[in-house]
Each structure stands twice: as C-alpha cells, then as structure tokens.
C-alpha cells in the first residue's frame, strides 16, 4: 500500500519536472514559435545554444543542492541543516574570487570547486578527534570556518579594485552565462547521487541517532565520511556552475519529507526531482519577469516566507 503511493508521487514529480523543463525552454525574452523553428535559424540557436543548457543546468544544480540538503538534514538530525553547513559556500566564493583576481576569472569554476572541497575537508579535519567526528563539532566548526573564509573573501573584495564587479556578480549566483560545458560538468551530479540511494537504509538508521546506529551495526564513521564527501562534491559542482544559491537545499527536502516521509530511499530521489523543478522555475522567473535578476534573489524571495510558513505550521501542531 505504501510503495504504490510513493511510486505515484515520484511519477508525479517526474512529470512535473518534464513539464517545467519544456515550458522553461520555450519562454524567454526572445519569443520563439515552435512551428517556425525549422525556417528560422536564430530561434534554433537560442533554443539549443542558450536555453537548453541553461534549463538542464538549473535542473542538475537544483537536484544536487536538494540531495545534499536531504543528506545533511538526516546526518545532523536537524531539518534546519543545509548543504552549505560545511563552509562550502564561502569556500567556493573564496576560490572564485581568487581566480577572478589572479587570472581574470578564467576557469573560475575549477577554483570554486577546489574552494568548496577544501573548505569541507578543513571542517572535517578540524572536527576529527581520535578517528571520530561528532556531528555537533562539525556544525560548530562549519560555522567558524565559514566566518573565517568570509572574512578572507571580504578582504579580497576590499583590495580587488576593478575586479570587484565580477566577484559581486559571481557571488549573486545564477545561470546567465551558462554554456554546454557547464552542463556537461553538471551531469557528474547524477553518478555522484547514486551512492546516496544505495546508502538509504543506513541513513535512515543514522537519522535516529548515532549510538542507535552503532548498536545496530552501522559503521557510522565510515558512513559519515561517505555522506559528507558526497554532499560536499554535489554542492561543489553546484556552486562551481551557478554560485551559492540559497534555500533550494534547505526547503526542498523539508517539503518532500512532509510528502513522502523521512525514509531516504524515496526522500532523496523526490528531493532531487523537486529541487530541479523548483530551480528551473525560479530561473525562468528570474530571466523573464525578473529581467535577469540573479536566481538566488528569486529563491530567497519565495523560499524564506515559505520556510517561515512551514515553521509556524510545525510549531502549531
């Protein structure tokens, strides 16, 4: 009885995502009539060269952030956790800013990726005590490292001179200069998410508490290492493509948990589908109604009030 319900929800989410992708490919400042595509070369160029990579990238980034958010919330047993908890967002920003200042922004995504992963490793390394990593320690270290990296970033911005504008644009995040190259990198997200599905039963047990998990035979230290590594990787890919976009990774798993329950086997694919849908719709809104406002503005504008609504509803019950 339970499995068909979940299958149905997943099917619904797949359809929703597909419909959103089609719709978002077709809307944009340059109106394209589907039927005129064959005659009009510029329409096809916009569609294949601009909109399609942008739509696919948004879906992949949304899915990555939502998956990482779901994993982090389970790991920290806290539905307020988000993918940037390990300092990945400020690490990525610092990496990108360094690239912009040193080499004028060439391959800034590599630097952003390295910054993300570096920050995550730093947080993990600092939290580690005789082979164990307590999650409270991770949480607090993540905050401290984020603040420190944020300070370094502010300093860089202060001394960056003319590059300040570029750094600022990067920080706001978005998909306006997406190319197929970014999209191909984004496809790395899919294989990276596979182990998360395979580890769903272990994540369920860990979500109930670490000691419970140990006494049920879960190798929690290894599991935490794997989950943190994969989440950091997913977040790093997302950040290196589109900067740090907020709220998708926080809200999507939250809503999906209300819909499909906390079991990770369904929660993770559901979050990925919904995260992709939400981000592709937000981006469409950003580039049409918002006149290319950074997509992070859109997600925060709708995400924050919705989050408050969820919180109030939860405390009311």
């Amino acid at each position: 009885m339970q499995i068909p319900r979940h299958a149905l929800i997943l099917l619904g989410l797949v359809s929703l995502l597909a419909a959103s992708m089609v719709a978002c490919t077709l809307v944009g400042p340059a109106g394209i009539a589907l039927l005129s595509l064959q005659q009009d070369g510029s329409g096809a160029t916009i569609l294949y060269g601009v909109r399609l990579p942008r739509v696919i990238s948004a879906v992949l980034v949304g899915a990555a952030l939502a998956a990482a958010g779901a994993v982090m919330q389970g790991l920290f047993r806290n539905s307020m956790a988000d993918p940037y908890l390990l300092g990945t967002s400020s690490g990525g920003a610092l990496g990108a800013a360094t690239a912009i200042i040193l080499i004028g922004g060439a391959s800034s995504w590599v630097f952003a990726f390295a910054g993300c992963m570096g920050a995550a490793f730093l947080v993990y390394g600092i939290s580690r005590r005789s082979g164990r990593v307590p999650v409270e320690q991770l949480l607090l270290t993540g905050i401290a490292v984020s603040m420190f990296l944020g300070a370094v970033l502010s300093f860089l911005m202060y001394v960056s001179g003319e590059s300040l504008h570029l750094i600022f644009l990067w920080l706001m995040g978005g998909f306006w200069n997406i190319s197929w190259q970014d999209t191909w990198i984004g496809f790395l997200i899919l294989p990276a998410a596979v182990p998360l599905l395979l580890l769903s039963r272990e994540q369920d047990i860990l979500a109930l508490g670490e000691e419970d998990a140990v006494s049920l035979g879960v190798d929690t230290e290894l599991l935490k290492k794997a989950l943190l590594g994969i989440s950091a990787f997913l977040t790093a890919i997302a950040v290196s493509i589109a900067g740090s976009i907020g709220f998708i990774g926080l809200i999507t798993p939250h809503i999906m948990r209300l819909l499909v329950g906390p079991g990770h086997r369904v929660l993770i694919p559901a979050s990925m589908l919904a995260g992709g849908t939400l981000l592709v719709l937000s981006d469409a809104l950003a580039r049409t109604v918002g006149n290319e406002v950074p997509v992070g503005v859109v997600t925060a504008f709708f995400g924050a009030p919705f989050f408050v609504f969820l919180l109030r509803r939860r405390y009311a019950s």
């Binding site: 389970g74 047990i205 109930l208 508490g209 049920l216 035979g217 879960v218 948990r257 329950g261 906390p262």
Partner: peptide, 28 residues
C-alpha cells in the same frame, strides 16, 4: 541495546523503526 528513550528527530513510522532492528541480518 535498548537505549533510554529520546525524542526521535524524524517522522519514521513505528514499523519502520522496529524493522531497523533487522539491519544486522539484512545488511547493506
């Protein structure tokens, strides 16, 4: 081990939690 009961963080069903006791036998 039956630990002292503490409030669980997520809405797992009772059966799901009991089924977790089979993890040692079911494995990964």
């Amino acid at each position: 081990l039956v630990p002292q009961a503490t409030a669980p963080g997520f809405d797992f069903s009772v059966r799901e939690v009991v089924a977790m006791g089979r993890y040692p036998h079911i494995g990964m």
